[in-house]
Amino acid sequence: MDWGQIFNSAAGELLSPVTAAYALAAIGIGVHFGYAGLLNFGQAGFMAIGAYAFVIPTLLFDFPLWAALLSSVFASILFAFLLGIPTLRLRADYLAIVTIASAEIVRYVVMTTGLTAITGGASGLSGFNSTFTALNPFADGSYGFGPWVFTANQLWVRVFGWSLVVLASILVFLLMRSPWGRVVKGIREDEDAVRSLGKNVYAYKMQALILGGVFGSLAGVIYVLPRSVQPTNYATTLTFFIWTMLLLGGAATILGPIVGAMIFAVLLTLSDGLIRGLISANIITFISSTQAGQVRFMIIGAVLMLLVIFRPQGIFGNKKELSFNV
């Protein structure tokens, strides 16, 4: 087995567009849960909405890149309103159930055979990447060093994705040090208290839901840019993985979601590579290579449990300001 290869691909994951998408989606739930205390379990739905609202107009109406991105953002705002209007006045756990249900509705709808002409049904959509690659400012060639050697297109999608992540982080930083952030964090602590101080709690929760949802939809765009749209990717499991990343890094922190996503992606690749490597070297003999793919998900589940029990504030969280017990 080739240890170098395993570590190289794990290191490559660190900057991959998928990791950037995970990070951005995690920043989104960070706004929801870490700052505003909203239990959004439908981030996969926001990502699906973002991806499809980007891809469908591109394919059907030849939208330019900027218009497709706008369409993605608008669709997620609309989706946030649809989710928020019935649930933001209710108890927190209702939002959890409604968001998870809505994300599943989105997945069922895009997968239904009746809409195959538009959504591609169960096989998804592809061939929408030309508007993006056409804007590639990098000349052909090979860039980078070590495990991070990219073609011009690979570099362009990474630069684009991580730029969005950085912009989102700056936006969150600016908002959370402002009085707006103070109100939102107050709502996380006790929304009745904030209401009694004359703040329109409902409006603030809606704004937070929209903001995190827009991040989710842009994450959905980054997620599909280098490949095709696969509806099966947007199952509830995706949401749970993003939650794991967020909690890994620390929910109410700026860097937490990004580092959490990076650690998650690297660990996922590394553990998979290691187990497969050990199998191919006949060191582990009792696991088939199909089963090897399953072991890492068991690890994710166990890590999530242990993390929440023993280090709820995540890697970056303040021990005092436990980012939990909303």
Binding site: Q294, L304, I309
Partner: peptide
């Protein structure tokens, strides 16, 4: 006993769900 919050405990059940599901798949 540890005074773990409800949201926290709920996320623990999510972790357990993932763990058990893949053990069954295994």
């Amino acid at each position: 006993r540890r005074g773990v919050g409800l949201v926290q405990a709920m996320i623990v059940t999510i972790g357990l769900s993932i763990l058990v599901r893949y053990v069954i798949l295994f």
